[in-house]
Amino acid sequence: MRRRRLSAWYAVGLALALAVTGCSTEAGSEAGSGAGSRAGSATGAGTPTGAGAGAGAGKDPAPASTPTAPATPAEDAADAPVHVTIPAIEVSSKLLRLGLNSDQTVEVPTPEQGMTAGWYTGGAIPGRKGAAVIIGHNDTKYGPAVFKNLKKLGKGAKVTVRDARGKNLTFTVTATETVRKTAFPTQRVYGPTDGPELRLVTCDGEFDAAGHPVDNLIVYAKL
């Protein structure tokens, strides 16, 4: 899986850079780490996550509100998400912590971590005002991945995120969309919201000449 990168949510103008582009079944991807080590950069899901031969998981009107002030490190650690469950598509995964690479692009899970989703720490903490973003591959060179069935998720489906305290937060899917990576809706995915919201991102669509899916699949949900 060849790595490509996304910029942070505040770089609204760089829609292409924010598309998840790390989805393919190519061999020879760079090693990385999720929780505690460097993750691969995103190149196919509007945010980090891979997609392979088949549908993927994977990022616009301007929001009306602005993000709330950041919490203290202690609060962040206690409220940070550690697990995601999506009963409708049989997903139960711990969550890696995905930050930024040295070039300010968003980290994504490596192909070896294909069955594990990741939470982008530059977005909101689930349950707080703002858009929390979870990224996952739908396929890697090792086979189907954690978000392989994300495309089957429909409006009204439930997504439960558990934080480090053991508290469960259940979000309800409000919409899904498939977008070209070249027209990734950066503001809609990463921008501020009126309340606590969640986005799930993965790759989707046909493959380009380099072996990467040309689209991203984005699932929107509200607490």
Rank of each mutant, 00 (worst) to 15 (best):
G36V: 03
E75P: 03
R38V: 13
T176Q: 10
P192K: 04
S29L: 06
K129V: 11
V161G: 03
S93V: 02
G32C: 15
A210T: 15
T176E: 04
G114Q: 04
N138P: 02
A51R: 09
P67F: 11
G54S: 13
G13A: 14
T25P: 00
T170E: 02
W9K: 09
G156A: 08
C203T: 05
P185S: 06
T121H: 08
T160C: 04
D215H: 10
D204Y: 06
S65L: 00
T25W: 08
I89Q: 09
L153A: 05
F171N: 04
L217R: 10
A69G: 02
V201F: 09
A35I: 10
L223Y: 08
G166R: 04
A117R: 00
L98R: 08
T176V: 10
Y10W: 07
T85L: 03
M115R: 01
G195M: 11
T174V: 12
A51S: 11
S92T: 09
V84C: 03
V84Y: 01
L200G: 01
Y142S: 09
R5S: 07
V12F: 06
A88P: 02
T116D: 04
P48S: 10
L150W: 05
A124S: 15
R3A: 13
A51K: 11
A71Y: 10
A45Y: 04
P81Y: 00
T110P: 00
S93E: 00
Q187G: 14
R38M: 11
G99E: 08
R2Q: 14
F207D: 08
G118K: 09
R97D: 09
A77H: 03
E90G: 05
L150K: 00
D139F: 05
P61V: 15
M1A: 15
G32E: 01
P111R: 02
R2E: 12
A175W: 05
R3D: 07
N138R: 07
N138V: 02
A51F: 12
A45M: 13
L14E: 07
L198Q: 07
C203M: 11
G123N: 14
S29K: 09
G118I: 02
G211W: 12
F147R: 01
G166D: 05
R180N: 13
G123W: 08
A221N: 02
T170W: 00
C23A: 11
N168W: 01
C23F: 04
I218S: 03
N101Q: 14
K167Y: 10
P192S: 05
P111L: 03
T105L: 03
A19G: 12
I125Q: 04
S65C: 06
T85C: 01
V84P: 04
G123R: 02
A45S: 13
I135S: 13
